[in-house]
């Protein structure tokens, strides 16, 4: 009797251990099964996750809240690229540093003509294309690269991502398609919420530190009348500042938009002179608290803007 109960408990232990081992194995198999994907920015990471769900393992090379245009790659990034099956980049000269990294990463699949290379700007209606000339505003010859800030552009970006995922992991296409449609449906409801929230700002001109917002402005019908920084990284001249101040007074601009990585003091100076308030908006997922994914990014920005508008 005693013996049989001992045997039972030993068997039970054994069974539990087996179950544990199996679940660990199964989990690791699942983890291995996941498609390893590298994106350059957190915004693209969030969109790839929206399509890929738990079938993908996504890493963004640029950490949240770092300026992706001035990112300095690290040795680990080479390893990440080497092991990745898909690479999603912003393009439009926004993440130029990636090209040199790719040349070193020794993963021909991710090269420009490789099956794993995705330029997310594909099919986007690029705004402010100025050819060769470095016109006022953004110094990007290929057009303004902040296209993910129009939530509607997520449709195009996710379809590009979907197509690439279908190439890499054809077995699970239906899952990816379903994920994408569910995400877009959620975005659609949110979009109309944000549009209602931002409607009061239609008649209120804004000034921003840097010209990151043309796509955002177009979608929500906002009027950015000036920028502090005429070219990335070059501080404004006094005459430019005087002109902006004049515009702000003439058009009664009450809100200045700043991103967390932009100089606080300069914006506060202008706000003080013009009697405006400063609103800090996130131009990228993770740049501010409560902007952990693509949808919460707009949620928070819309909230901040409408709060600033109603405070006046």
């Amino acid at each position: 009797m005693r013996n049989s109960s001992q045997t039972k408990s030993i068997l039970l232990c054994f069974a539990m251990m087996l179950a544990c081992a199996y679940s660990v194995l199964a989990w690791s198999a699942l983890a291995q099964d996941r498609v390893p994907i590298v994106t350059t920015t957190t915004d693209l990471r969030s969109l790839v996750e929206a399509v890929g769900g738990d079938r993908v393992e996504v890493i963004s090379l640029v950490p949240a809240a770092m300026d992706a245009e001035e990112y300095q790659p690290k040795p680990q990034d080479l390893l990440r690229l080497k092991n990745a099956r898909l690479l999603v980049r912003v393009g439009l000269d926004y993440d130029l540093w990636l090209d040199r990294l790719l040349a070193q990463a020794d993963n021909p699949d991710l090269g420009r003509d490789g099956a794993g290379y995705v330029d997310a700007s594909f099919g986007i209606s690029v705004l402010e294309v100025r050819g060769l000339s470095v016109g006022p505003g953004h110094a990007h010859g290929l057009g303004n690269p902040h296209y993910w800030l129009d939530p509607k552009n997520a449709e195009i970006i996710t379809s590009t991502i979907l197509e690439a995922l279908a190439r890499r992991d054809p077995a699970n296409v239906s899952i990816y398609e379903a994920n994408r449609l569910a995400f877009l449906a959620r975005l659609e409801t949110k979009l109309s919420e944000w549009e209602t929230k931002l409607a009061p700002l239609k008649a209120r001109p804004l000034v921003a530190y840097h010209n990151s917002w043309p796509y955002f402005a177009r979608r929500f019908r906002l009027d950015f009348v000036g920028f502090l920084e005429t070219k990335p990284g070059v501080p404004p001249s006094p005459s430019h500042l005087a002109a902006i101040l004049q515009t702000m007074r003439a058009r009664a601009v009450r809100i200045i938009v700043r991103e967390p990585s932009q100089p606080e003091r300069d914006v506060a100076f202008l706000a003080g002179k013009a009697g405006a308030s400063v609103v800090t908006l996130a131009a990228s997922v993770g740049a501010l608290p409560r902007t952990d994914d693509f949808i919460s990014l707009f949620e928070r920005n819309a909230e901040a803007l409408s709060a600033a508008a109603s405070a006046q």
Binding site: M66, D67, E70, P235, P238, P260, S261, P263, E264, D266
Partner: peptide, 17 residues
């Protein structure tokens, strides 16, 4: 969390402001 911009901000005050 904030990245290199913070360092730049400390280092480059702007006399205009």
């Amino acid at each position: 969390p904030q990245g290199a911009e913070h360092l730049k901000q400390i280092l480059t005050g702007n006399i205009l402001f």
